[in-house]
Design a protein around this nucleic acid. Structure first.
Lengths: 155, 155
DNA sequence: ATCCTTATTGCAACTAGTTGCAATAACTAA
DNA sequence: TTAGTTATTGCAACTAGTTGCAATAAGGAT
């Protein structure tokens, strides 16, 4: 927990029991979690923990880069601990999720920087699509065809 | 409105006054709108329109690819009409937003397809970063440095 | 060790968004 | 044109998430 403490303190923020509880939970579970799940677990770690604090803490820690946040379809907003830079690929049909390394996006970020001057730092992008299995059952199509494809969010 | 109607009907869905009202509003404004904004405007078009219907309609239309949905930071979930495939670049500092054409991502999607078999259809991805102006004021840094960079959502 | 500044929390009230279900109405087919 | 099927809506109650503000406590300075 100490590395996290020093990161925050260098930036003028404080390490609190509530933040420790959330980081502990995220580190222990090591997977996508909804704010509600985090709240329930964090309450075990620290009785008296409140919901607004969990929401504020998750938001704060992801702003600080200690957590990653992502929308994984149908309005589900989830968090996970930031151990390595990676992104997600999620199947709209069956929900199957795949991790992809950041190196696949590095070139794109470079291009965007060259063309727009923006220095991109989205280290957790989620792409939606159809996994190989679901492509067979439900062939992809355009907006003018008879199947749902594009649209929905991704960021 | 007729093209939209036939798209939905081909897929076994129905065109209703509520869906027309939402599409009208989105087409008229032609920009990012929050569900609340859409609700307020749609009520003008169709008195009696309710909030659950607006939420359901926005969700439905974006699943069908007629609307695009995106998170533009700090929990803001917005929709816009799907006229052309594009993505967004948003500055975390000042909020400046830039549109980028889909052709910039086409190669990435191709690579992902080759490597994973997934057929990506995220036609509205939002990337976060720092615009040139804000880079000067606030030099970017890594997680172990003294500035906020990575993290937050994008997908 | 103690004081001081101010970041952070908890509370309470609020706004945003979702869900189950019965009633309605859009479209298809005869 | 009418009847039948079922996708869609509205209602109401619910869950999720946010905000303002006073009280608290983390951490730097003395």
């Amino acid at each position: 927990m100490e590395p996290y403490r020093s990161i925050l303190q260098k930036r003028g923020y404080r390490m609190t029991p509530q933040r420790i509880a959330v980081l502990r939970v995220m580190a222990e579970f090591g997977r996508h979690m909804t704010p509600i799940e985090v709240f329930q677990q964090a309450q075990q770690e620290l009785p008296g923990m409140t919901e607004p604090t969990v929401y504020r803490t998750l938001n704060f820690l992801s702003e600080q880069g200690l957590l990653l946040a992502a929308h994984v379809g149908s309005g589900q907003f989830v968090y996970e601990i930031a151990l390595r830079d990676h992104h997600h690929l999620i199947c709209r049909e069956c929900g199957e999720a795949l991790e992809i390394g950041h190196e696949l996006l590095a070139q794109l970020y470079e291009n965007l920087k060259n063309q727009t001057g923006f220095q991109i730092n989205s280290m957790h992008v989620t792409f939606f699509g159809l996994c190989p299995g679901c492509q067979e059952k439900k062939p992809s199509a355009q907006i003018s065809d008879n199947s749902s494809t594009a649209g929905q969010q991704s960021g």
